[in-house]
Amino acid sequence: MDYTAIILTIGIIFAASFFSTVSGFGFALVAMPVLTLVMSVKAAVIFVLLLNLVLRAITMYRVREGYDKATVILTTLGSVVGMLPGSWVLKVLPAAQLEVFLGAVLVVATVLLSLQFTLPIKNKPCGRFAAGILSGFFGASTSVSGPPLVLYFINEKLPKDVMRANMIWFFGLSGFLTVLVNYFYGNVSGTIDWSWLLYTIPVMLLAIWLGEKFFYRLNQHLFRKLALAVVLVGALMLLWSGWQNL
């Protein structure tokens, strides 16, 4: 048993769980690039998807009164449309190429939003549905589903409590559906060592508890900056990881 790999995995899952609890997203963004150092890309994708289900089940319950049901349903339906081709792409194409492409797009989008550039959205339902499609596609193919939706919600300038609750519920529902689709495509069985879940779930619970406490100390401005920072760091890590695996 490689104890160095286990310790590294435990540390990154703690960090990913903490930031995901605070911001409502970012679990895969933080975890994926580092996990690919200790396991294959496809194993890391499935591992992250399964841990995400545990994280979301807990946090969904905690924000059950604060999310916008109509928005969550619409974006989740969009993600279903996107995850079908995304799972197929994961099966037939190297994930590294998708990581490089997604990372490059996210860097550009994050920089523009940090400079206060926003796009006026005339039809918000269509915009949310489209963001859900992109989120589902990249979630199924790279396990990084958050940035398209996060950047869209930041563009809409949603209040931090509503934005976080919406993302937690969306990623909980879409994560469950993504696992089902990947199971259908045969991507789950025999991919990961299930015993690794036993090492990581306890530290995830600690990270959720600490993240909840930290979130309520953030104001709207700091929350936006944190969200953009997590997306940018994750995008750079995706570029690095994808480039290393090309």
Score class of each variant (00 low, 15 high):
Met1Phe: 13
Ala5Ile: 02
Ala5Met: 06
Ile6Ser: 07
Ile7Trp: 11
Leu8Ser: 15
Ile12Asp: 06
Ile13Gly: 03
Ala16Phe: 06
Ser17His: 02
Ser20His: 09
Ser20Val: 00
Thr21Asp: 02
Phe27Ala: 00
Phe27Gly: 01
Ala28Val: 02
Val45Asp: 10
Ile46Thr: 12
Asn52Tyr: 01
Leu53Gly: 01
Arg56Ile: 03
Ala57Val: 11
Thr59Tyr: 10
Tyr61Gln: 14
Arg64Ile: 13
Ala70Val: 14
Thr71Gly: 13
Ile73Pro: 05
Leu77Asp: 08
Ser79Gly: 11
Met83Asn: 06
Gly86Glu: 06
Val89His: 00
Val92Arg: 10
Ala95Lys: 03
Glu99Val: 00
Phe101Ser: 09
Phe101Ile: 13
Ser114Asn: 12
Gly127His: 07
Arg128Lys: 11
Ser145His: 10
Tyr152Gln: 02
Glu156Ile: 08
Met167Ala: 03
Trp169Tyr: 06
Gly172Ala: 00
Ser174Leu: 00
Phe176Met: 09
Ser189Val: 09
Gly190Asp: 00
Ile192Trp: 05
Trp196Tyr: 12
Tyr199Gly: 05
Ile208Gln: 05
Leu210Val: 08
Phe215Thr: 11
Phe215Glu: 03
Ala227Ser: 15
Ala229Pro: 08
Val231Arg: 07
Gly234Asp: 11
Met237Ser: 15
Leu238Asn: 12
Leu238Gly: 10
Trp240Met: 15
Trp243Gln: 11
Gln244Thr: 11
